[in-house]
Simulated scan of single mutants.
Amino acid sequence: MTATETRSIADVAAAAGIPAHTGTSIDGPVGTAASLHLACALPAVTWGSELFGPLLMRAEHLATPLRYEGGELHLPDGPGFGVELDPDAVRAFARS
């Protein structure tokens, strides 16, 4: 589902006064950060989300890992999605 489709569904839920919940497939940290930003931007999303993909990964991809604390994923606040890839990790995962 695209962000536009998600937004449309959330707008219908908001108009009807129905709380919404978001989730993803098991995304990496960049996809998770993007999904979190979308969820935080949608007023209907009041039941949280399931964005735990990075917790299941054996290797870190970001210069500063996403912050999970107290059962919550905290919204990164840098430019873009608020995350920065770790260049060494990118090289380690690159295929030639």
Results as ranks from 00 to 15, higher is better:
44 A>R: 05
50 E>W: 05
57 M>Q: 15
84 E>S: 01
80 G>D: 05
58 R>D: 14
13 A>N: 03
82 G>A: 04
42 L>V: 07
33 A>I: 11
46 T>H: 06
13 A>P: 03
46 T>Y: 10
7 R>I: 12
1 M>W: 11
30 V>N: 07
48 G>N: 12
55 L>R: 12
26 I>Q: 11
55 L>P: 04
46 T>V: 12
66 L>F: 12
46 T>Q: 14
50 E>S: 14
2 T>Q: 05
8 S>T: 10
91 R>E: 05
5 E>Q: 15
76 P>A: 11
87 P>G: 01
88 D>S: 06
75 L>Q: 09
64 T>P: 01
92 A>Y: 04
10 A>C: 14
71 G>L: 13
28 G>R: 07
42 L>I: 06
40 C>M: 14
31 G>A: 14
57 M>R: 13
23 G>L: 13
20 A>Q: 04
85 L>K: 07
87 P>R: 00
10 A>R: 09
87 P>S: 00
7 R>Q: 02
32 T>E: 00
80 G>C: 09
23 G>K: 10
88 D>L: 06
63 A>T: 14
40 C>H: 13
8 S>D: 14
88 D>V: 04
22 T>I: 14
94 A>Q: 11
40 C>K: 15
32 T>N: 07
41 A>S: 15
95 R>D: 00
14 A>W: 02
30 V>L: 15
45 V>P: 03
22 T>C: 11
91 R>L: 13
88 D>A: 13
50 E>T: 12
39 A>N: 04
37 H>I: 00
29 P>Y: 03
3 A>M: 08
20 A>L: 07
65 P>A: 11
84 E>M: 05
33 A>Q: 09
60 E>M: 06
72 E>R: 15
24 T>K: 02
21 H>L: 15
46 T>E: 01
59 A>R: 09
2 T>V: 08
92 A>M: 03
72 E>Y: 13
46 T>G: 15
41 A>V: 06
44 A>F: 08
51 L>K: 05
82 G>I: 00
17 G>T: 01
79 P>D: 15
23 G>D: 04
77 D>V: 05
20 A>W: 09
6 T>K: 05
68 Y>H: 08
25 S>T: 13
40 C>R: 15
81 F>E: 00
38 L>P: 02
43 P>N: 06
63 A>K: 14
19 P>W: 04
60 E>F: 04
17 G>E: 03
52 F>Q: 05
30 V>P: 03
85 L>M: 12
73 L>R: 08
68 Y>I: 03
18 I>M: 12
36 L>W: 08
45 V>A: 03
69 E>L: 13
64 T>I: 08
78 G>A: 15
63 A>S: 15
19 P>K: 07
54 P>H: 04
67 R>Q: 13
72 E>C: 13
6 T>S: 02
20 A>H: 06
74 H>S: 06
92 A>R: 14
31 G>N: 09
70 G>P: 11
87 P>V: 01
18 I>W: 10
53 G>W: 05
50 E>Q: 14
61 H>K: 10
1 M>N: 08
84 E>W: 02
91 R>D: 02
38 L>D: 00
39 A>E: 00
22 T>F: 09
84 E>I: 03
29 P>K: 02
1 M>K: 08
49 S>I: 02
43 P>S: 08
10 A>K: 06
42 L>Y: 06
44 A>I: 04
67 R>S: 13
68 Y>F: 14
94 A>Y: 06
57 M>Y: 10
53 G>M: 08
96 S>Q: 13
9 I>R: 09
55 L>V: 06
34 A>N: 07
32 T>F: 12
34 A>G: 12
42 L>A: 10
